[in-house]
Amino acid sequence: MKYADIKGLSNEQVKEEILKARKEALNLRFQRASGQLEKPSRIRELRRDIARLKTAQSAAKNAK
């Protein structure tokens, strides 16, 4: 997910996206632990997406 895409989202949508990304990250951690993870790079992508979402969320808070 690109930062430009995130900027167009409302605060509630950003919260939902963070929640979805965290759930997916949890599932990927379980898959890695059980040896079923097919795409290990997805974990890194999710961590960065979550960071981008949190950055956008804090920027929106500071702008008010």
Rank of each mutant, 00 (worst) to 15 (best):
M1R: 05
K2Q: 14
K2L: 13
Y3S: 12
Y3R: 14
A4W: 04
A4V: 13
D5Y: 12
D5L: 09
D5Q: 15
D5A: 11
D5I: 05
I6D: 07
I6C: 06
I6W: 07
I6S: 06
I6E: 08
K7D: 07
G8F: 08
L9Y: 13
L9K: 14
L9P: 05
S10R: 09
S10K: 13
S10H: 05
S10Y: 02
N11A: 06
N11T: 12
E12V: 08
E12T: 11
Q13G: 01
Q13N: 12
Q13F: 05
Q13M: 12
Q13P: 03
V14C: 05
V14T: 14
V14D: 03
V14I: 15
V14F: 05
K15C: 00
E16R: 14
E16W: 04
E17F: 11
E17Y: 07
E17S: 07
E17W: 09
I18K: 09
I18C: 03
L19H: 10
L19G: 01
K20M: 08
A21D: 00
A21Y: 08
A21E: 02
R22A: 04
R22G: 01
R22S: 02
R22F: 00
K23G: 02
E24A: 07
E24D: 06
E24C: 01
E24W: 00
A25D: 03
A25C: 00
L26M: 03
L26H: 04
L26S: 09
N27H: 11
N27A: 13
L28T: 06
L28A: 04
L28Y: 10
L28P: 04
L28H: 03
L28C: 05
R29I: 01
F30A: 11
F30M: 13
F30H: 12
Q31E: 15
Q31W: 02
Q31A: 14
R32Q: 15
A33T: 02
S34W: 06
S34C: 05
G35L: 05
G35T: 05
G35F: 07
Q36L: 12
Q36K: 14
Q36A: 14
Q36Y: 13
L37V: 07
L37F: 06
L37C: 10
E38C: 00
E38L: 14
K39E: 14
K39G: 00
K39V: 11
P40Y: 03
R42Y: 07
R42K: 15
R42P: 05
I43H: 04
I43E: 11
I43K: 03
R44T: 13
R44A: 14
E45A: 08
E45Y: 10
E45K: 08
E45S: 01
E45M: 09
L46G: 06
L46I: 12
L46A: 00
R47V: 01
R47E: 13
R47L: 06
R47M: 02
R47F: 03
R48Y: 09
R48M: 08
R48Q: 12
R48T: 04
R48K: 10
I50N: 01
I50S: 01
I50G: 02
I50H: 02
I50W: 02
A51S: 10
L53P: 08
L53D: 04
L53S: 04
L53Q: 06
T55F: 09
T55R: 15
A56H: 05
A56P: 01
A56S: 10
A56I: 04
S58H: 08
A59M: 13
A59H: 12
A59G: 00
A60C: 00
A60T: 05
K61Y: 04
K61G: 00
K61A: 13
N62W: 10
N62Y: 13
N62V: 08
K64V: 12
K64Q: 14
